[in-house]
Amino acid sequence: MAKVETQGLEKYFGEVKAVDGVDIASREGEFLVLLGPSGCGKTTLLRMIAGLEKPSAGDILIGGEAVTHLPPRARGVAMVFQSYALYPHMTIYKNIAFPLKAVSMPKDDIDRKVRWAASMFGIERLLRRKPRELSGGERQRVALARALVREPNVFLLDEPLSNLDAKLRTSAREELHRFQKDVEITTIYVTHDQIEAMGMGDRIAVMNQGKVHQLGSPKEVYSDPSDTFVAGFLGSPPMNLIKTEDRIIGFRPECFLPRELLGGSGDLESFTVEVSRVEDLGSDRLVYGRLEKRFGHHQVVANLPTSFTHYSIETGGTYDFAVPRKDVKFFDVESGLRAEPIPL
């Protein structure tokens, strides 16, 4: 167990700033997710922590010690790659044993630890096979076992689920999360998939263009975004962001409901919506439409759980919608950062 900390970390590739002054600190045993669109610098950040890229500036600390100039093997980190990066010419046993051989561990100890790591992921029966004979899910477990076998201080995972099919991904997500909680090893997990991030992360660092926009618990980054990027990136469909003269106002589609469904409860902000399209997605009903003239006929989306089926909405109709006042977020027009609420 160890804390991972970066201080003013920067990385340039030629003129391009891939990572632009990142200061984050994980907690011990934490599952920290780096979330962002492709090319946001999250993988570069992870590779710098692993020691595979040299930072252009800044420092990396693992367990309180500066490791910025140490080679990967001296950092006590283990990494799982998106491609799993199993050694194709070695059996599964040798793949898992490889990090132990690298530290010249006695043969008996290697054997014991390989079998232990394999049993953690239920892959004992695969030990004599080669990676090409394995399915995607099995390869992913082998990669995890190879990372675990050294009992590292830190796990670095680079989109390890993205090569699995959708069904397998769900179960692998749950398994990975439970495993991390069992071993209590600090984990930094890179993904562009917000469902993975929300489902597994203790905290999420939302990145864009080399910068960390927000670091917080899944609930915080979702319902209390620090700026318009985070607000627009998280959620599917993302937060409605409506530009007015003084503020950008934002509210989640699932908070945006027909007024009569919200009842008279609490403090509401009301809008009129001219519905242009209704999508029935099974569990949810997405209602697309335009706001009244006061908000420049801005496009909005509302997300109605299908449990409200009795409430009928027709394309072309105009309806009264409302958002609880507490669910409306305000952002600065210029900077996109959170700003003081104003009356609408």
Binding site: R73, F81, A102
Partner: peptide
């Protein structure tokens, strides 16, 4: 890279 991180 994996071999590097694995300490080889």
């Amino acid at each position: 890279d994996a071999a590097l991180v694995d300490g080889a």
